[in-house]
Design a protein around this nucleic acid. Structure first.
Lengths: 226, 226
DNA sequence: ACTGCAAGCAAGCACCTGCTTGCCTCCTGG
DNA sequence: CCAGGAGGCAAGCAGGTGCTTGCTTGCAGT
């Protein structure tokens, strides 16, 4: 009963240890491995023994860092829902907004969404599992990442509509249509469910953007005007 | 060792039995219950005891009908991937096609997709779980249901482009954008992740359709320029 | 009445899985 | 040099879980 439950925080007292072992490096290693495995097989489908084996630590060590498997999962949710995600480039979007660069703004958005989910593929699985298994990650992520982006885009569209640069239409529908098509494509790519679109990531983003803007613009780009 | 493994087919010899017990009614009951539970908690998250209890049968009975839990799951996939799905209204779409009724065709599509996934909500979960857990349902469903629909729409778009009624653009992207936005919305609804769009199902379908067609039509404002 | 199928029921086996305990080892800081 | 923190290792417990076995019961058709 002497030293149950380490609780990472206080380990930060000394940086030391040897060369390769930073203070809470093992905790990070466990987290990282657990993220990968939970993403692959879901919460219920992953055993703590598996995590330990894959992380190269003893199973007991896991329970010394996390009170339970559930708490390990919660720690992951904490990490994943707070770490840099979609919102980190809201500031970049603001620049496009100032320049009224419609193409740039939506292309940047689409492109980054595709890149984001490709880079952090585990996150997509994790999010889907959490939706299905009824955990809170999806909702938290939605509130902290999706909603701000959604509101920004919606806001931009409304502005452009007032300026007469965009068609009058339900801005919610427009945003939903744009994000939906891009996001859905990202999911399809994730599951290797796509053989329709042969384009690479950048080209795809460009096509979706063009398609979207063609719907928003009062005067469609007449490419063949005799 | 006398009668292990019943294998439904041959039970259909006589219709008889009593009033409430049709030949393979119990098998159906098991399947139906299993579908619901697998959809709620995934394959790994559902126990055979649970299924038996919920179906009102003895656990042993399950294994008399299905060699293993895995085979029960396979039977479900069989049912779900062959039963009436998106393709059942391809014939209706053909009528819209003959009339060149763009609005009707895409509205019908969007509307039915939303209705389909709302009516058979379990299927959506089942499909997502199967994608994540690496089963074959998603792929099978894709080949048998999504692809035909995709090809039909793609084909229609190409035709209308040739006729000059639709803009020149990558038809794959167009279909992907349309289906993606609608499908994504269905998923959002499924997980109660939507508070952006207040419209009901019909209105939403209509809005997505309008949005899509506005991008496809050469002359957005004036419908009859001739 | 006899036969045979289908389902129920009680029990249980073998393995898995989250989690615990006790003890030993290595490293570091004072 | 020593105290103490952090991890390894071996063992195991309690409950769950897929699946089996042996038996009984009820309902048909001949």
């Amino acid at each position: 009963m002497s030293r149950r439950l380490v609780k990472r925080g206080n380990t930060g007292s000394g940086v030391g240890r040897s060369a390769e072992s930073a203070p809470s490096e093992i905790r990070q290693q466990i987290l990282k491995t657990a993220i990968r495995l939970f993403a692959q097989k879901g919460f219920r489908g992953t055993t703590t023994r598996e995590i330990a084996l894959a992380a190269g630590v003893n199973e007991v060590t896991i329970f010394r860092h996390f009170a339970s498997k559930q708490e390990l999962y919660s720690a992951i949710l904490e990490v994943k829902s707070t770490e840099a995600g979609l919102t980190e480039w809201l500031v970049d979007l603001a620049q496009f907004e100032q320049r009224r660069d419609d193409e740039g703004l939506f292309l940047f958005t689409a492109s980054n969404i595709l890149a984001h989910y490709k880079r952090d593929a585990d996150f997509l699985s994790l999010k889907l599992y959490s939706s299905l298994e009824g955990h809170e990650l999806a909702q938290k992520y939605r509130e902290m990442q999706i909603c701000p982006l959604f509101r920004f885009l919606r806001n931009y569209i409304v502005t452009r509509q007032r300026e007469g640069a965009f068609n009058q239409c339900d801005p919610d529908i427009a945003v939903q249509a744009f994000l939906g098509s891009v996001y859905n494509h990202a999911v399809c790519l994730h599951f290797s469910e796509v053989d329709f679109i042969k384009l690479n990531q950048e080209e795809t983003a460009k096509e979706f953007t063009d398609f979207f803007l063609r719907s928003m613009r009062p005067a469609p780009g007449r490419k063949r005007s005799t």
